[in-house]
């Protein structure tokens, strides 16, 4: 008779009252997760990316896909090749090994035309923060952001590093369509929209670059671990870049790696 599993202690080091990390999470009969934290932290994200890089360099038989997120790595596996129980143990062991220095990612500069079709949200944020448009631009474009993960939609980048003063709650009622390239603020997070779609985030501008274009040789512009800065551009430069992007001749500026 199958024993009905009860919610509660999981494999991995754990005490009753306090969860200790990393720990293993079961995600069905074809996926398993290893979680390093329950909050957004760069340290946890680096562990996730480091383990992901280790699995790419020395794969474990049976793993079909890996999905790094803010604080956990989920792997999809073929149970005919490897069982979840054994895979979980292997992931914990691998995570405990001295990881190589994590890749600091590329540092990329995204030109942004602030305002424009997103002028209303932009003005509202300036008003909410009791500051000027120039200050919002200066604040937003002075920070360095980090791509914590790609998800939700193809190429959609969740960014960390938004200056605290720009933290703004999501809208109560999402909008039906936000265009690709829109630069968003949702609570403490920041994002670059990758495909048109509904969103409850607030948007302050747009970049002409496309994070996702399946017709391009490299369909995805960003990956988790990349770092980003924004540079304010005017309408003329935005239009010029739109044309270059459409022609496939625009190149994203890589400042460092």
């Amino acid at each position: 008779m199958p024993v009905t599993p009860r919610p509660g202690p999981r494999s991995g080091p754990e005490t009753i009252n306090e969860i200790s990390y990393p720990r293993i999470l079961r995600c069905g009969d074809r996926a398993i997760g290893i979680e390093f934290s329950d909050t957004v932290s760069e340290a946890a994200n680096l562990k996730v990316l480091s383990l992901d890089a280790s699995l790419a360099a020395e794969p474990i038989d049976g793993i079909l896909e890996t999905i790094p997120t803010y604080r956990s790595l989920t792997v999809i596996y073929d149970p005919k090749t490897v069982r979840g129980a054994s895979l979980g143990e292997q992931l914990l062991q691998r995570a405990a090994q001295d990881a190589a220095a994590p890749d600091t990612g590329r540092l990329l500069e995204f030109p942004v035309f602030y305002g424009g079709e997103h002028q209303a949200d932009f003005d509202e944020i300036a008003e909410l923060k009791n500051t000027t448009a120039a200050d919002v631009i200066a604040l937003h474009s002075s920070a360095e952001y980090r791509v914590y993960m790609i998800g939700f939609a193809p190429g959609f980048a969740y960014l960390g590093g938004l200056p605290e003063i720009l933290h703004t709650p999501r809208l109560a009622v999402p909008r039906q369509r936000i265009e690709a390239g829109a630069i968003g603020i949702g609570g403490r997070q920041s994002s670059i929209n990758s495909v048109p779609g509904p969103s409850g985030w607030r948007f302050i501008g747009r970049t002409p670059f496309k994070l996702f274009d399946p017709a391009r040789t490299e369909a995805f512009l960003l990956k988790a671990g990349d770092r980003i800065t924004f540079r304010s551009i005017d309408i003329d430069e935005a239009r010029e870049l739109d044309e270059k992007v459409a022609a496939g001749t625009a190149e994203l500026k890589e400042i460092a790696r």
């Binding site: 995600c27 069905g28 074809r30 996926a31 997760g33 979680e35 329950d38 909050t39 957004v40 999905i67 997120t69 803010y70 604080r71 956990s72 989920t74 999809i76 993960m149 998800g151 939700f152 969740y158």
Partner: peptide, 11 residues
């Protein structure tokens, strides 16, 4: 609300 993590088909 959780800090967004991966979903799978069947979540």
């Amino acid at each position: 609300d959780i800090v967004s993590d991966a979903t799978v088909v069947g979540s």
